[in-house]
Amino acid sequence: MNDVNAPDDETPICSAKDCRAPAVWVLAWNNPKLHTPERRKTWLACDEHREHLSSFLGMRGFLKDVVTLPEWQERESAADR
Protein backbone atom coordinates (compact mmCIF):
# COMPACT_ATOMS: atom_id res chain seq x y z
CA MET A 1 0.00 0.00 0.00
CA ASN A 2 1.43 3.39 -1.01
CA ASP A 3 1.23 6.40 1.27
CA VAL A 4 0.13 9.30 -0.93
CA ASN A 5 1.99 11.73 1.37
CA ALA A 6 5.29 9.84 1.27
CA PRO A 7 8.01 11.31 -0.95
CA ASP A 8 9.03 9.36 -4.03
CA ASP A 9 12.64 8.31 -4.64
CA GLU A 10 13.36 11.57 -6.47
CA THR A 11 12.02 13.92 -3.78
CA PRO A 12 14.68 15.44 -1.50
CA ILE A 13 13.83 14.61 2.11
CA CYS A 14 14.54 16.26 5.44
CA SER A 15 17.90 15.50 7.05
CA ALA A 16 16.45 15.26 10.57
CA LYS A 17 16.78 11.80 12.09
CA ASP A 18 13.89 9.50 11.13
CA CYS A 19 12.07 12.26 9.22
CA ARG A 20 10.82 11.33 5.76
CA ALA A 21 9.04 14.62 4.99
CA PRO A 22 9.85 16.43 1.76
CA ALA A 23 12.57 19.06 2.14
CA VAL A 24 11.56 22.71 1.89
CA TRP A 25 14.75 24.37 3.16
CA VAL A 26 18.48 24.11 2.55
CA LEU A 27 20.82 24.84 5.46
CA ALA A 28 24.26 25.65 4.11
CA TRP A 29 27.11 25.21 6.58
CA ASN A 30 30.76 24.46 7.03
CA ASN A 31 33.05 23.44 9.83
CA PRO A 32 35.96 25.90 9.72
CA LYS A 33 38.26 23.32 11.32
CA LEU A 34 37.67 20.96 8.39
CA HIS A 35 36.54 23.01 5.40
CA THR A 36 37.87 25.94 3.43
CA PRO A 37 35.85 29.16 4.00
CA GLU A 38 34.06 28.96 0.63
CA ARG A 39 33.07 25.28 1.01
CA ARG A 40 29.39 24.65 1.76
CA LYS A 41 27.93 21.43 3.04
CA THR A 42 24.13 21.17 3.09
CA TRP A 43 21.40 19.71 5.21
CA LEU A 44 17.83 19.66 4.00
CA ALA A 45 14.91 20.48 6.29
CA CYS A 46 11.15 20.29 6.30
CA ASP A 47 9.22 23.18 7.87
CA GLU A 48 8.95 21.28 11.16
CA HIS A 49 12.71 20.70 11.56
CA ARG A 50 14.19 23.87 10.05
CA GLU A 51 14.54 25.69 13.36
CA HIS A 52 15.95 22.69 15.24
CA LEU A 53 18.58 21.92 12.60
CA SER A 54 19.44 25.62 12.22
CA SER A 55 19.92 25.93 15.98
CA PHE A 56 22.13 22.84 16.08
CA LEU A 57 24.43 24.24 13.39
CA GLY A 58 24.21 27.82 14.68
CA MET A 59 25.30 26.93 18.22
CA ARG A 60 28.49 25.50 16.76
CA GLY A 61 29.10 28.50 14.49
CA PHE A 62 28.69 26.33 11.38
CA LEU A 63 25.49 27.78 9.85
CA LYS A 64 26.14 30.08 6.89
CA ASP A 65 22.81 30.37 5.07
CA VAL A 66 19.19 29.15 5.12
CA VAL A 67 17.25 29.35 1.85
CA THR A 68 14.32 27.61 0.24
CA LEU A 69 15.11 24.51 -1.78
CA PRO A 70 14.00 26.14 -5.08
CA GLU A 71 16.23 29.16 -4.38
CA TRP A 72 19.22 26.88 -3.66
CA GLN A 73 18.57 24.88 -6.82
CA GLU A 74 18.42 28.09 -8.85
CA ARG A 75 21.73 29.28 -7.36
CA GLU A 76 23.36 25.94 -8.14
CA SER A 77 21.98 25.98 -11.67
CA ALA A 78 23.26 29.51 -12.24
CA ALA A 79 26.69 28.56 -10.89
CA ASP A 80 26.88 25.65 -13.34
CA ARG A 81 26.28 27.91 -16.34
Rank of each mutant, 00 (worst) to 15 (best):
M1V: 03
D3I: 00
V4T: 01
V4M: 01
N5Q: 05
N5A: 07
N5K: 05
A6Q: 05
P7V: 10
P7M: 05
P7T: 06
D8I: 04
D9W: 02
E10M: 11
E10R: 13
E10L: 13
T11G: 04
T11E: 13
P12M: 03
P12K: 06
I13K: 00
I13Y: 10
C14H: 07
A16K: 02
K17L: 06
K17D: 07
D18S: 07
D18L: 07
C19D: 01
R20M: 13
R20Q: 12
R20I: 14
R20D: 08
A21N: 12
P22K: 02
A23F: 09
V24H: 11
V24G: 04
W25R: 09
V26K: 13
V26Y: 09
L27T: 02
A28N: 14
N30P: 03
N30R: 01
N31T: 15
P32C: 01
P32D: 10
K33W: 11
L34P: 12
L34M: 15
H35T: 07
H35Y: 13
H35K: 14
T36Q: 14
T36K: 13
P37A: 08
E38T: 12
E38Y: 08
E38R: 02
R39C: 11
R39V: 02
K41E: 15
W43G: 06
C46L: 04
C46Q: 08
D47F: 09
D47A: 08
E48K: 07
H49F: 05
R50I: 01
E51S: 03
E51Q: 10
H52M: 13
H52D: 10
L53P: 10
S54H: 06
S54T: 00
S54A: 12
S55F: 00
S55M: 02
F56H: 09
L57A: 08
G58V: 09
R60D: 00
R60G: 03
G61C: 05
F62D: 11
F62R: 04
F62M: 10
K64A: 08
D65E: 06
D65A: 11
D65P: 02
V66M: 12
V66P: 15
V66A: 11
V67G: 07
T68F: 07
L69A: 00
P70E: 02
P70W: 05
P70Q: 00
E71P: 11
W72H: 15
W72T: 12
E74Y: 13
E76W: 15
E76L: 15
A79L: 12
